[in-house]
Simulated assay, not measured.
Amino acid sequence: MTRIDTKFAQLKAAGKKAFVSYIMAGDPDMETSLAVMKALPGQGVDVIELGMPFTDPMADGPTIQLAGQRALEGGQTLQKTLDMVAEFRRGDDTTPIVMMGYYNPIYSRGVARFLTDAKAAGIDGLIIVDLPPEEDDELCIPARDAGINFIRLATPTTDDARLPKVLQNTSGFVYYVSITGITGAAAAQAAQVGPEVARIKAATDLPVVVGFGINTPETAREIAGVADGCVVGSAIVKEIAAGKTPTEVAAFAGALAAGAHSA
């Protein structure tokens, strides 16, 4: 049982949906992003997705791309991101942390070394958007063997023939991308998302959490109402980009979390 498994079991027992918040590590600098990260659980955030800044983020919209650029310009590295997690864990040993990003920085570090360091820092799961199931031997299976969940994305274009392949080595939860395209590009619609979530849940016992296109407490409630939870990224990152304080950013995330929890 990872912290992710434990958290979703607790939420299910309480009849609550999950709220997952995304921030970019090192945006706009390591100190600020760490302060935001530390403030999120107290506002009701159940799981933290921590972005790994990368120079070529192909799945990300302008908001997340700019966050990554700010982080890289501020000197953020993979090592500093692991250091952030380790520092967070000194005060919080229960909130699940999912590292999200691209394979290149992990490959450059070396998979075995990365997994050892990630586990030691306190990372519970990985979402690596550019590693398809056909490449599971690269990272997915080694991560699972190291006790780290490998969370797969399903999308509106993941048909019934493809879905079993996507699910075969997935653990923790399934991340359903509510729209086709990049992050922050359109609004999620519960009427469209609901049937897709039901289709995925018919094929797996894992929780299904929906991300992309959620930016208000009302949308968070609507989407969480047809899934096991929801993810908000771009809307929170915009607050950071606007220069809001860590307390203000966390309060904004808290309002979204309240929406999801009211579903």
Rank of each mutant, 00 (worst) to 15 (best):
T55W: 10
G61C: 07
D29G: 10
P142W: 00
E135L: 12
A258I: 04
R90H: 13
S33H: 09
S108L: 14
V174S: 00
I23H: 00
K80L: 14
L153T: 08
T247L: 13
P105W: 00
F252E: 00
G122P: 06
R3Q: 09
V36W: 01
L163A: 07
G51S: 11
L115S: 03
Q76W: 01
P195E: 07
F212A: 12
S171T: 15
R90P: 05
S178W: 09
M30R: 14
G110Y: 11
L66G: 15
A186Y: 05
D159R: 00
P57Y: 10
G61Y: 04
D56K: 06
E218D: 14
G75F: 05
D46V: 01
A14V: 11
K119V: 03
I236F: 09
K80R: 15
I141M: 05
V45F: 04
F88D: 07
T116G: 14
K17F: 04
D56P: 09
S171Q: 12
F114G: 05
A190T: 09
D124I: 05
A224M: 03
D205K: 14
V231M: 02
L115E: 01
T77L: 03
V197C: 12
R113D: 15
V45D: 05
M84N: 12
S21N: 14
D27G: 08
A258F: 05
T77K: 06
V210P: 12
